[in-house]
């Protein structure tokens, strides 16, 4: 056997072993904070696996959202929760067995589904070729962005709407109550990192037109900047203090996406069928506003409510 192929095989086995070990440990751990840490590392290793599978777009998204923002949001949720509950999972045997059986049934169904999909993999490759053929008419040169914001723009619009619905729910929880103890050394360093995060967000957004990147990853980086500011003692986490400005920012992504779609419909083009000459600019506009909305949504989700006018 070829040495190179053998090494790839060993690497794949190692990555899969680590991934499975992490997944088991995260689920079986009895302490929530430990589960969360394992979940974050799981995100990291999953990003490596996506990279190995030649899927840099998903690797980037997983690194930004799974390994980065997901952990921060889970921790914020746990902090809110610990006042009422202990750190232990419910351990009632009936619940555990019920969940176990359910997971096994679902797992079998997924395995069966994957198995029956296998013969059609070749057709999926052909669809990839179809995307490449249409790429010139999409306004961008990166196939994944073309699919997400042009050919299948519907899906992305609905994803943004889901985020919007989530933030409505979070705002319904009321005002932000707690503040963090600030440290001078950390605040000084945060001042360094925040501009870098914002710069990186801009780069990832711009890179999305021709290489892996895009609004969700860029929004996650913006939210990272917001969370750092919040931890460094800025009670508004860098968000505007004017209320209507925050609300405008939250709905901007979904709103403009929808308006562009409806406008094109009125123009006689069909919902979200951009005219080829301007497709790039429409996509750029939508992505920019979506980035702002996603960043603000995730930051507010971390804060867990509406920022107070005069926070402590």
């Amino acid at each position: 056997m070829n040495l190179l192929d053998g090494l790839w095989g060993v690497l794949d086995l190692l990555l899969v072993a680590v991934l499975l070990l992490l997944a088991m440990a995260a689920v079986l751990s009895s302490d929530r904070r430990r589960s969360m840490m394992l979940f974050i590392v799981f995100g990291l290793v999953l990003a490596l696996v996506w990279a190995r599978l030649h899927a840099p777009d998903i690797a980037l998204a997983e690194a930004a959202i799974g390994a980065g923002l997901g952990g921060a949001l889970l921790m914020a949720t746990l902090r809110r929760d610990t006042h009422q509950q202990t750190d232990q999972f419910p351990q009632h045997p009936v619940v555990l067995w019920g969940v176990g059986v359910l997971v096994m049934v679902l797992g079998t169904a997924i395995a069966w589904g994957l198995f029956s999909v296998l013969p059609t993999v070749e057709q999926t490759w052909r669809k990839g070729a179809a995307v490449d053929a249409q790429l010139a008419f999409s306004g961008v040169s990166h196939p994944v962005t073309a699919v997400l914001l042009n050919f299948r723009a519907w899906d992305t619009l609905l994803e943004l709407a889901v985020l919007l619905a989530a933030i409505f729910g979070i705002r319904a929880l009321g005002y932000v109550r707690s503040a963090y103890v600030t440290e001078v050394a950390f605040s000084q360093l945060a001042v360094w990192l925040v501009p870098l995060l914002i710069l990186m967000a801009g780069y990832v957004l711009w890179a999305g037109a021709h290489s892996p990147g895009g609004a969700f990853q860029a929004g996650a980086l913006l939210a990272g900047a917001g969370i750092l500011l919040r931890l460094a003692g800025y009670s508004h986490a860098g968000l505007p203090t004017t209320r209507w400005l925050v609300r405008l920012g939250l709905v901007a992504g979904t709103g403009v996406f929808l308006l562009v779609g409806l406008g094109l419909l009125g123009w006689g083009q069909g919902f979200l069928h951009y005219p080829i000459a301007y497709a790039k600019w429409w996509i750029l506009l939508i992505e920019m506003l979506a980035t702002v909305s996603i960043g603000m949504t995730l930051t507010l989700a971390f804060m867990g409510g509406i920022p107070q006018k005069e926070a402590a």
């Binding site: 974050i40 980065g68 870098l196 990853q217 990272g224």
Partner: peptide, 9 residues
């Protein structure tokens, strides 16, 4: 991205 967000976590 991993390096930058590691600090946040």
């Amino acid at each position: 991205v991993l390096v930058l967000l590691a600090v946040v976590v």
